[in-house]
Design a protein around this nucleic acid. Structure first.
Lengths: 111, 111
DNA sequence: AGCTAACACAAACGAAGGTTTGTACTCACG
DNA sequence: CGTGAGTACAAACCTTCGTTTGTGTTAGCT
């Protein structure tokens, strides 16, 4: 369904809208890290970091792995791919839109 | 400063986080349209649409052109490019190449 | 089994953002 | 200049979201 992709895109975009979550992604960008380390790196409490990790997880932007008592989180490219392909859809259209702007100005106020 | 690009990215990401604004981008994706038409297309009031258009404009996602009493809005790729390059930074080189392959397969014949 | 560490879940609080309502401004027209 | 169409700005209201606080759950250790 197209609606499913829409919902996934919406989750990913809303997750990326927060600076703390982007900071978390930066922290786990190179290597997966436990929640405690992530919280310390971004200057958040354990609970808040865990919350944001959950948001990122549901958005398909992060994946978690059980490592004993720790929970290692890493970047998931699934959600990022959804956003990327969404953005890419605007590139070819932009050229056409730009052309239409010029045409619209040439047409004048009345159609 | 890197903070400047960060601020631009933040604006674009927060602007894209709203479904109505994404709907507006879809409306003006193919051709620039006046505020009244956009509002009608997405099912919003003129004031609300104007507000979102302002958000998209400040985020570098939309550009407006004065057309007499009308104000034509079109998609601006500046903000989208900022988001795109940000996302690309998360992909390890190997995965980025893989992603490009997938995109190429989607455009080409059946694979 | 008891204890400790690491993490997740849930409710409450506060702030940020979207919608509505009202109004002022600009441009086209006579 | 006065009128009407189209749009932007501002304040009030309400919803959403991030943070805090408190607590439950799982795993490792003695």
């Amino acid at each position: 369904m197209t609606t499913e992709a829409e919902a996934d895109l919406d989750l990913a975009l809303r997750a990326l809208a927060d600076g703390n979550r982007r900071a978390i992604l930066q922290v786990i960008r190179s290597a997966p890290q436990p929640v405690g380390t992530i919280a310390e790196q971004v200057g958040l409490s354990q609970q808040t970091a865990s919350h944001h990790l959950g948001v990122l997880r549901k958005a398909g932007l992060a994946v978690g792995t059980r490592e004993g008592t720790r929970h290692l989180f890493a970047v998931d490219t699934d959600g990022l791919a959804a956003v990327r392909s969404y953005l890419d859809d605007f590139w070819p259209a932009k050229l056409a839109a730009l052309k239409t702007v010029i045409e619209a100005r040439q047409e004048g106020p009345r159609g």
